[in-house]
Amino acid sequence: MRRAIPAPKVKLLFKDIEHLLRLAAVMLIAVVAFVVLRAAVVPKSFGQYGHYRGDAIAEVAARPVAHAGHEVCEGCHTDVVDQKKLGRHAGLHCEVCHGPQARHADDPASIKPPLPDTGVICARCHEANSAKPRSFPQVASADHSGGLACNTCHQPHRPKIQDQAKPATGAKR
């Protein structure tokens, strides 16, 4: 467009657009290559349920659990369940204090969970804090026990002190 190039005066249209046809061919090849690549590379389960890999759902679900869940614990530790039922910790699940125990449930004989440190565990819930609901039992542990471990007086599975003195039938709930 800028400079005049001496060119042979060929009137054939094909000759005049040959370069464009060649370009179109290159583009067509690129598009075909893309379509082929797409068919080959996109995972088979893509679009099974929506715009995602259907297999991903099962992959997420396949993760092994770490917390066994209280039903599994209660299957064996019936004595603790009976204890717990009598006190205010009845609704507490085992792994709240004992931590994730799926590995123990899997192999109870060789994997023994450590005994939780009541000094730490109890305070997490019962250390006084103005943001806790008023009705929730809470103490300033320094004043309350003077550094003694909580299980010196309270039995964690059935924490109320009087409860433990009474026979099992005297439970409130």
Partner: peptide, 11 residues
């Protein structure tokens, strides 16, 4: 692209 046509018309 293998085409060296530079006719007036093509330009």
């Amino acid at each position: 692209l293998g085409s060296d046509v530079l006719t007036e018309r093509s330009l």
